[in-house]
């Protein structure tokens, strides 16, 4: 079995008395889509925050490509190759879609301390940015400011940014939320191909998408993973049916 890209061991995080992450262990292997499902408030986003570095775990281990990332801040983890999207889109609202992606391209090139060359005439920035936008189907919206994009388009833009970063793993927090059936369908097809580029930790409520895409599924309830397995394992898991999918699922 290939070495996991992302390896989480016994992670714990409490907010006061609330155990938002309660001994979570989970890994992400090359080429896979690992879906993380669970009811609202289960601690899915909190887990992503700790992986990406925007929240500090109380204890436990997070390794990325074998390296302990706990001492690293958000920016340093992104430079290692964590391509993260936010449950609530987080973009530079005044910048166009293109400029939002260009920011990722320049970050990837490691060159933000250049003071005199105008970015809009710099094809080493604009070309990869246009490519990333094309891949998510946002080419015709390149010049629209992020603030004026629709909700679904902002989700797509976040994915384009992660692509432009050359992420080694994608951490996607409910990328399909608010996208509408056609958008979800298109994104499902896209993510299906994306796993060959880099593995995806996918948090998603859309069960059709999860069952269509996931190589493995982990179920998080009250901060604990109650089951991990293939689509069939999870579908037939009694505790999962009870805790999460409900009868008839």
């Amino acid at each position: 079995m290939a070495e996991p890209i992302l390896d989480i061991r016994d992670l714990r995080k409490s907010f006061g008395a609330l155990k938002a992450t309660d001994g979570v262990s989970l890994d992400l292997r090359p080429g896979e889509i690992h879906a993380l499902i669970g009811p609202n408030g289960a601690g899915k986003s909190t887990l992503i925050h700790q992986i990406a570095g925007s929240l500090k775990p109380d204890s436990g281990e997070i390794r990325f490509e074998g390296r302990d990332v706990k001492p690293l801040d958000v920016a340093a983890r992104a430079r290692l190759g964590m391509g993260r999207t936010f449950q609530v889109s987080s973009l530079a609202p005044e910048f166009s879609a293109l400029r939002n992606v260009m920011l990722a391209v320049q970050a990837r090139q490691g060159s933000s301390f250049r003071f005199f060359k105008p970015v809009m005439h710099d094809r080493s920035l604009t070309e990869p940015a246009h490519e990333a936008l094309a891949r998510v189907g946002l080419s015709d919206r390149a010049d629209v400011s992020a603030a004026e994009l629709s909700h679904g388009e902002r989700r797509q833009l976040e994915i384009a940014i992660a692509l432009a970063l050359g992420a080694k793993a994608f951490l996607l927090d409910e990328p399909m939320a608010g996208m509408g059936p056609e958008g979800s369908q298109a994104l499902t097809t896209f993510l299906d191909g994306l796993r060959a580029e880099a593995p995806i930790l996918l948090i998603e409520h859309d069960m059709d998408a999860v069952f269509a895409l996931a190589d493995r599924i982990s179920v998080l309830v009250y901060g604990r993973i109650i089951a991990t397995g293939t689509v069939d394992d999870i579908r037939n898991h009694p505790a999962v049916r009870e805790a999460y999918l409900g009868d008839g699922a």
Binding site: S90, A92, A104, A107, S112, F115, M120
Partner: peptide, 24 residues
Amino acid sequence: DSRFGAALQAGRQNDTRLAAVGIG
């Protein structure tokens, strides 16, 4: 209009976004 300016202005708009692409 430069790369530095892009990072600086992005940070004003949303510094979570700036950090998420790997720029401190």
